[in-house]
Amino acid sequence: MPDAASPLVRELASLARLELSAEEAAGFGAQLETILGYIQRLQSVEVEGVPEYLTAEQVRSGLRDDLERPELDAEQALAGVPVVRDRLVAVPRFKD
């Protein structure tokens, strides 16, 4: 079983862009350990030769024609953006 203590939680939080207080990290670490312990039971299932489940497997192709379908105008879409500068969505400056 993986060590679900703080370093792992820190790594996961970093991947998921979640800031965690020390207290949160400790709490989540303990809970993840319990939950992962429970999930370990899956390791006992015989899955040799079993394919992964195909989600949304069905008859319909699910493809669409290449036709424009005006849904909402750009102004409406931009209305909910927290910070806009000259029609552009603004965030704190970052380097490429």
């Binding site: 999930i39 899956l42 390791q43 299932v45 899955v47 394919p51 992964e52 489940y53």
Partner: peptide, 15 residues
């Protein structure tokens, strides 16, 4: 951890 967790769970889902 993909193969041991997600991949395996997708197989159990088939079962």
């Amino acid at each position: 951890s993909y193969a041991d967790y997600y991949g395996r769970a997708m197989k159990v889902r088939t079962l």
